[in-house]
Each structure stands twice: as C-alpha cells, then as structure tokens.
C-alpha cells in the first residue's frame, strides 16, 4: 500500500481534473481562441486593495495574468485564453489555496454580457463532456444548467437577502460580511447565478456603466453558493486606469501593505485596446463542483500543508 494514502486516494479526482482541463482547451480552441503563456513572475502586479502578491526576488509572482493578457489585446490579439497558476498571499480555506489554477479569457469588441453567455456555454459543455449530464449534483444540492441562469444586480441581492441597501452596507463597511454571510449562500442554488453591477470602487480595472458611473460593469458567477468566476467590461482609458490604480495604491499604503511599482507599460498601451471584456475563473473550484468535492484540497495533488 502507498505510504501517502491520502495522495493515492486522490487519483480519481486528479484524473477528473485532467479531463476538465483537456475539455476547457477543446472549448476555447474550437471557439477560435489562441492559447497564450505569459510570464508568471512580473515586476508590477495591478494594485488592488485586498489582493496581496507574493514577492519573488525583486519582482512578484502574478496574482492574475490580467496585465499581460490585456497588453496582448491592445496589440491586436482578438481572442485569447490562458490556464496558469496564480498566487495570493495569505489565502487558505475550504475554497482557497495560496497557489491556485486560473483560467482567464479575453475578447475584443465584447462586454460583460457576452462573457456571461460564454460562462453558460462553457459550464454546460464541461458538465456534459465530463459527467454526461447538464445537472451538477453538489453536496446535496441539484443545480440545473439547462434552464436560463439567474441574473441579479448586486443592489437587488442586498434588497432581497439582507436588511440594508448596498449603499448603506458600503458606508458601514459591511459589504463583504453581508455578501459572505447573507447573500452568497443563496446564489446559484437551483441554477447558476450571475450577480452584476458592483459599486465602482469594487472594480479597479472595470469599465463604469455609461449611464451610472457609480457602478462598474463587473459580475461574479456563483454555482451552489461558490464564487466561480469574476468578469468585467474592461476599462480602456489609460488616464482613468492610472487614477484608479493610484487610489488603490494609496489605500494599500494606508493599510501598511506592500506597494508595487506602477505597471507603466500596460498603462501606456491600454488606450490602443478598444472595447474588450475579460474574465478569471478558478479551475480548482470548477473541478470541485463537477466532481462533488467538499474541499479544494481534494482536487489538487498537494496542498501547501502537504509539501
């Protein structure tokens, strides 16, 4: 018998993971996307209030391939996708690993609504290909993928599931707490759900809604209460992006967090990009959902504690 029994017992899950990733590549290759590999170690991650990069020498391990992938868009690559590891310092829990695997895809001439449609097509395709069904059975709940997926604004979700408005929650610094405790458990229970139009301050790289600049064209996809993907219409105005980054950097400095150099090359090239949309989806969580695994540690070869 294998010395490492828990690793041996994970063989079926790792086989499942491998087929999910193979099918993701098939989906995007057939959709006319180019698979790209951008460097994992970068000099200047996007400054975001609550995402902490792991230092690597003078540089950092990427928290997302976003900066490099948008430079590709700006250089005229219309449809690109990438499957890569990302690192976020201090994140560990049932749904979090400090090193995890991300799927990101980006499209020119598209907005966040197009990405929601992509998500529907992708998850249906994967469920059919891997499990032979358009139903996800996850930890005692049954999630139908065929029927139209729920779409609810963040403001509506606060009205429906909490005792205060989105604006009040922002003001009283209770947005995240209410999201986790009151809203998330209700999202994507019968069908997957998109929750969209976040407060502007919660999408440092997202385009603001032209008709209401207090909201960002950003959405999250939830399946069975689990946050699976975050996408948005990309902000393509260099000057506005620099201002938003400076605001985030100042906030990080005020909290005593590591400061990063400004990603100047990205900011210089951004104005050439034009309208675009991009999304990040956690592959480990997608595998959890498709294989009915309760903990993210069950779908990776090694957790940090096992190394």
């Amino acid at each position: 018998m294998a010395k490492n029994r828990s690793l041996a017992a994970r063989k079926e899950a790792l086989k499942g993971r491998s087929s999910v990733i193979r099918k993701i590549r098939e989906f995007f290759n057939e959709g006319g996307y180019l698979e790209v590999d951008t460097p994992l170690r970068i000099p200047a991650p996007a400054p975001e209030s609550y995402i902490d990069a792991v230092p690597s020498g003078e540089w950092f391990l990427q928290t997302s391939p976003e900066i490099c992938m948008k430079r590709l868009l700006a250089a005229g690559y219309e449809r690109i996708f990438q499957i890569c590891p990302c690192w976020r310092d201090g994140e560990r829990g049932r749904l979090h690993l400090p090193e995890f695997t991300m799927l990101e895809w980006y499209r020119l001439d598209a907005d966040y609504r197009d990405l929601m449609n992509d998500c529907q097509a992708l998850v249906r395709f994967l469920s059919q290909a891997v499990n032979g069904t358009r139903v996800i059975s996850y930890q005692g709940t049954t999630i139908e993928l065929e029927a139209p997926w729920e779409r609810v604004t963040v403001a509506e979700a606060f009205r429906r599931y909490t005792s205060m408005s989105m604006e009040e929650a922002e003001e009283r610094d209770l947005f995240d707490e209410l999201m986790v405790k009151e809203i998330e458990p209700n999202l994507g229970v019968k069908h997957p759900a998109f929750i969209y139009d976040y407060p502007a301050a919660r999408g440092a790289l997202a385009r603001l809604k032209p008709e209401n600049r207090s909201l960002a064209e950003r959405f999250e996809l939830y399946v069975g209460g689990i946050e699976l993907a975050n996408g948005f219409s990309e902000l393509d105005d260099s000057r506005e992006q620099r201002e938003r980054f400076e605001k985030e950097a100042a906030f990080r400095a005020a909290l005593g967090k590591t400061s990063y150099p400004m990603p100047d090359r990205f900011l210089n090239e951004l104005s050439e990009m034009g309208p675009a949309a991009g999304i990040a989806l956690g592959i480990d969580r997608l595998v959890m959902l498709l294989l009915n695994s309760a903990d993210i540690g069950e779908v990776v070869s090694f957790t940090p504690e096992e190394l």
């Binding site: 975001e48 209030s49 609550y50 995402i51 201090g90 994140e91 560990r92 829990g93 049932r94 749904l95 979090h96 947005f175 995240d176 999201m179 986790v180 998330e184 919660r202 999408g203 440092a204 999250e220 946050e227 975050n230």
Partner: peptide, 9 residues
C-alpha cells in the same frame, strides 16, 4: 476563511 471576489478576507 472567506473572501468575496476582490473583497477583504
């Protein structure tokens, strides 16, 4: 451990 997208831990 919980961390809603882009939010605080």
């Amino acid at each position: 451990f919980a961390k809603p997208g882009k939010g605080q831990a």
